[in-house]
Amino acid sequence: MTKEPKVSLRGLYKIFGAKDEAILHHVQAGMSKEDLLVQHHHVLGLQDINVDMQAGEITVVMGLSGSGKSTLIRHLNRLIDPTAGEILVDGEDVMALSETGLRSLRQNKMSMVFQKFALLPHRTVLQNAGLALAVRGEDAATCNAEASKWLDRVGLKGYENHYPAQLSGGMQQRVGIARALTANTDIMLMDEAFSALDPLIRTDMQNLLLELQEELHKTIVFITHDLDEALKLADHLVILKDGAVVQQGEPQGILMNPSDPYIEDFVSDINRARVLRVKSVMEPLTGTEFAGDVSLHDNLESMIARSGGDTTLHYRVMDGDAPVGELHMRDLVKALVPRLSSGDA
């Protein structure tokens, strides 16, 4: 991609402990997390992270507990300082910012949504949503007008004068999202934003986020431990393990070509028919006889329903009005079986 990335991380290392810089070279020489803990009593947070986040895309960082994903997102606005490496936002080095510059970056360029909502319990929903503007020094009328606009947008009209403790978890997180949107920043950081919600509400919130993104085209960095959620939201998926990037790229690509047994393990439990799209299994256009036209973005589940389970059919794949390839149902069925590493039965 030739576009300048909105946010990029270059060779980011984070070691937790008092003498982090002194032992950095051990990690750079390849010492493992366990050895570092045993021999030097320091905890390895992140190692050699290189990620580019494109403007207007949702970059999902996925990993299990302790993989460093929450640490990673806190580096973007320097809630945590790295041991080594560069953080560039709009080409500007965040590490070089003064305290005032950093505060201005946090106020004007990035907003954040938290797993535990982190709303102010003594402020009303309206005041919470308008927090970012109030911090910037806008007058109360502007804050309230912007805040109620976004509260409306996330479906909380009529709750402006409630206190957070009076709302359910899902509604509180809507306030959290409204607060981030009211800040009107290009970049939104979402730290396990939906992990504390129950599954139905979580699906609701994911749909809300996708709907908002359709319209707003923010640069969103989304942290999750849930692969389904990651695949649903991601334009660019980064998988972390023990503080290192195992694989990153387009989610369909990762699903079709896992580069590592760890990821194969991960993706083996996924409902592939629902996640994989036609574009991932189509072939170049050669044939002429088709059972019908399908969209590039249809998922495989809908294709199976459409073909009635008949594997002999072929479809023409369209991107808008232009034909771009063909889909053999036989390939589609093969794609439903996860590729296993050679040793596995």
Partner: peptide, 12 residues
């Protein structure tokens, strides 16, 4: 968490 949010929104 609330303190972190306050930091993240750039409070002095």
């Amino acid at each position: 968490d609330v303190i972190e949010a306050a930091n993240a929104f750039g409070m002095n």
